[in-house]
Design a protein around this nucleic acid. Structure first.
Lengths: 128, 128, 128, 128
DNA sequence: GTGGTCTAGACCACT
DNA sequence: GTGGTCTAGACCACT
């Protein structure tokens, strides 16, 4: 998971989003624990309080359940919820970008070209 | 132009982006003035200072030249710069969304489907 | 006389200073008129109101006396006053620059070098 | 650092200049933080927003890097940049004063005398 | 009317 | 504690 400190999206939300993605991808499975607040903070070079905030939000969403002495346990219903949410947010993100492009007067052809170029960018960046 | 107050992207940047798009689309042409700070603030229901900040940034970018007592005049080289910037930010936005999708374990086929659905969304929303 | 619109010193003060210098240099002599508001405005590509403000200040200083139907007439005591003022402001300007340089930790040798370089700059700019 | 509220140079620029000088003089060193926005505002009896503007400009110049929750950290390349900038602005300031003097009809001998007198002034003022 | 600067004070994310 | 953003409203120079 990568954190972008300059991204206007708050870091704690980036962390939450990262966990959601990981659950959707099956990296963390129901019954397993996600990394502890301290471990995560260390891994991301971020203050533990910030990770804490992210985890609290995930608990409110029901993706994860905090168990004393155990950690944050991935819930049973988590995966469907996460996957659903990921797909939804994906579509919304695309729609926003496309809307912006249209209001700048770009044609669908031009936008599609940028979309394909973006794929090339992500592949070049080492995300096969 | 629409402002989303809940968007983590600062309002002043949303405004700057909106003007950039308008210049790229040829709505404001070189030699013309963009809406005055006060008029824009009134139109967007936003504080004049916030608009001012957006306009300062646009001036630093060379899109616009401030003339006392006259207004913010669109520069000659503005359009190319704006168009370039819009294309660039489009590609970056797509790349970010795609990266997120990949790290959630989605395949290119799935992502493409979401992309096409997003187009449908924007068309349905009345942006033919 | 040159006006610098980007200089934080207000334009009307730049104009007033320009006239003071011209009087000190003997370009305008007692009994003569300085350029009319309209002529000056045209020459400097500035709004007549701005020139008007500069002239009002000069009249308050006693450098110039407005005579209906004639114009702004240079006063008898103007030259001494202007010359005196120019010398004074020169010294003050130098003192400020030198103070700033010292507080940046520059030595007298370094400051003197910059002073001599500045002379070269003004000569190169075509002000022999 | 002293602020002159009547100086036509905007306060936020005076603050920026003051920090630049301090960095050039080695008062703030790379890795250290400059005074916080609030502390500086209190020290200079100025609104925090005004200090903020000065610091934003310094960050754009690369003199300083803002770290959330930490402060404005002096960058590695800061000193060279600041020193360079100070020397540059010194020369420009001298050139402007000299130009003004020349257009008032003063000879180099007279201007040099004023320059030396200005040094005496700054020494008398207690800036050995 | 136009933009530029400033004060006063609030709320947010982060350490 | 730290910086970042925003509102509300004043005053200035210039056209």
């Amino acid at each position: 998971m990568r954190i972008e400190p300059d991204n206007p999206v708050p870091i704690f939300q980036q962390i939450a989003e990262g966990i959601r993605s990981a659950v959707a991808a099956g990296i963390y499975r129901p019954g397993e624990t996600i990394p502890s607040v301290r471990a995560q903070a260390l891994a991301l070079l971020v203050n533990p309080n910030t990770v804490q905030r992210a985890y609290e939000q995930l608990e409110r969403e029901g993706l994860v359940i905090s168990k004393k002495g155990v950690g944050m346990v991935v819930s049973e219903q988590s995966r469907a919820a996460a996957q659903n949410g990921v797909g939804q947010s994906l579509r919304t993100a695309f729609a926003q970008t496309i809307s912006a492009a249209k209001s700048s007067g770009l044609t669908r052809t031009a936008v599609d070209r940028h979309y394909r170029n973006a794929w090339t960018d992500t592949e070049r960046a080492g995300n096969p």
